[in-house]
Design a protein around this nucleic acid. Structure first.
Lengths: 359, 359
DNA sequence: TCATTAATGCTCAAAAAGAGCAAAATGAAA
DNA sequence: TTTCATTTTGCTCTTTTTGAGCATTAATGA
């Protein structure tokens, strides 16, 4: 983090002239866009997946994805929206670029001789108003439609991220012992700096000494991948994965680097929800405050005390009552609210500023 | 923001199978990496630029950039670090991917028939410990070295973002009247939805009704570009720019979309500084609290009351005293501090959590 | 009618943030 | 040497925000 500058006084800087780029290298690549299209359905965060065939006749879950052609589309986002609306017959509301990955060996199988692909991940949010027939059932299983696409809980892919019913037992049962072993495996003479880094990275990502930071979804996934505990790591032929005997199943795996893109998406959404009013992209036009809270908690994990959550969103001016009420709540009817679009103008960073806490 | 879903019940979803990608389109592109390498030098935020030749014999400022070749580099960041350390003879500490741009017509001149380039922007931070000969002088001008690279205040490119001496007068003199004119120019019958959007976007980005949000650097730049007030818009042949007679000079322009990348970098850094201890990547190992405050203010604009800033960083455990003091401060000697690396483990999001406020 | 269940309203204490006064420790000037 | 200007640093006081709990209200269903 504090490397010395290796600057040679006698030589001038040799920064490439930008125009030189066309002469230097012309190894062209393909651009693939992959979208994590998220929604919250009966308090469960779900993501749209498709089934993709594997070489051996099986199938894997994948994120909807498509190529980007600069000739056809003016911008990346236009390209994304175009093929999503075209293929999924679903119009995206909110869409945001996440990250561009180009790691060798993590997109296709290393043996594969397909062209190098750079994958650009996107996060898109939709409202849960599709027909129930294609949606998620109440009891959390999932159904696949004719084209092989379905909505699936994102915690199927990241069970360790689901803290809604407390700390998942998968930590003490699998993750902690295996990661500890992996960290120690590096404690061999010769490589002196790495072991500290590993143990420290684990502590940071999983908040061992301090606090669980719900936003570090990607850090945690990457660590598990590097430790070889993720099925994709074995698929990619990573050494760490091959050292383990039988791999414990840590969530459902996905095609290519799609699980990594999904991890990025979840982490980004968890962060953004706190300072931009993105939850409302996931809500119907009218909702009760408790429904809003449940949606936030589906994304972040259990957070605020009910009364304080109400005070929070109301006093921040994020919502306004519609005047109607919802009956059949099981108790007193709940007032319905709608998003108050004007906050966007009033506050620099309006969002559901929740901190970790109790139910 | 709330478009209805266009879902046809009778047709199943037609999501593309991810494997289909290789068959659909093979229009390959080149990947260019551009880095906004930032430092803070005598309380001035600076960025490393290079001179690039224009077609007509002149030269423009550009960000250091280079091609990414998947054959040579395992990951994007490895590629970036490699050519930066190679070409600039400067080792990057902190580096972070910003955004991938692929807008047609904004990378090269529209007449240009060069291959389509997707540019991936990076933000990198370095410590201001280069030799003074190549650095920025105290009085804010800049010197160019033999290879044409120099450190230049980032506010040269975005004068409207510099609120350290209050609200820049360029707003009332140029920006506000021109943007108002541009917003109204759309008030023609026929296009009914756009005008509201324009005026609202202006209000949001520039905080007309509410608060100035220092993080929206890109929003503001894009708006000025769309309004044709940015030199690059004229260069790209944008209609809005051609409508203006003489263009007021709104900051120094850059090659390709580099100013957009720099805008993204500044916005990202302004956001990140609040919840991750990235300021310390810009500080020497030892510093006084006032030096730290000055650095934060160089990036964000004037913020906290001195005593409260001290309380903030000390009580957050971000720093620890080294025991030494710095004399010649002009008054009582100041204690020297260093970054307390342990906070990373203790707090989920340690940063200089400053809100807008007074000096 | 009454028990149950949520939604909602309100209070109180603790913590954090905003703002200012004043003492301490220097270098420079008288 | 003394005084003064200047900057760091310590501390207090007030206001706001947050965390947590109790009490009331208005439905539903037995």
């Amino acid at each position: 983090m504090n490397k010395p500058l290796r600057r040679d006084e006698t030589e001038p800087m040799r920064l490439s002239h930008p125009d030189r780029r066309h002469r230097l290298d012309t190894s062209a690549v393909e651009i693939g866009l992959s979208a994590a299209i998220a929604a919250v359905r009966s308090d469960e965060p779900v993501v749209l997946t498709v089934k993709a065939a594997t070489g051996d006749g099986g199938s894997v879950d994948a994120l909807p994805s498509g190529p980007f052609s600069p000739k056809e589309h003016r911008t990346l986002e236009v390209g994304l929206r175009d093929w999503v609306s075209d293929q999924a017959d679903l119009t995206l509301g909110y869409a945001e670029q996440l990250y561009t990955f180009a790691d060798r060996g993590r997109h296709a199988n290393p043996m594969d001789d397909s062209p190098h692909t750079v994958s650009i991940g996107y996060l898109a949010l939709t409202r849960p108003s599709w027909p129930a027939a294609n949606g998620l059932n109440g009891n959390h299983d999932h159904s696949t439609d004719a084209a092989g696409s379905n909505w699936r809980s994102w915690y199927d892919f990241f069970p360790w991220e689901d803290w809604r019913r407390g700390r998942p037992e998968i930590f003490s049962r699998v993750i902690e012992p295996r990661l500890a072993e992996w960290a120690e495996r590096n404690e061999v003479p010769g490589s002196r700096s790495r072991p500290v880094a590993r143990a420290e990275r684990i502590r940071m990502a999983f908040g061992i000494g301090g606090t669980w930071d719900e936003e570090r979804v990607l850090d945690r996934y990457e660590l598990l991948y590097e430790a070889g505990l993720i099925e994709e790591a074995r698929r990619d032929g990573r050494e760490a994965a091959l050292l383990w005997g039988q791999l414990p199943k840590l969530g459902v795996s996905m095609q290519y680097d799609h699980r990594r893109i999904l991890a990025t998406a979840i982490g980004r959404l968890r962060g953004k929800i706190k300072y931009r009013p993105v939850v409302f992209e996931l809500m119907p036009d009218e909702f009760t405050l408790f429904e809003l809270q449940k949606t936030v908690e589906a994304i972040l994990g259990p957070h605020l005390h009910k009364q304080n959550f109400r005070r929070l969103v109301e006093s921040a001016g994020l919502v306004e009552p519609t005047g109607d009420v919802r009956a059949k709540t099981g108790g007193r009817p709940a007032k319905l609210f709608r998003f108050r679009r004007e906050v966007l103008m009033e506050r620099p960073a309006p969002g559901v500023r929740v901190k970790a806490g109790r139910m």
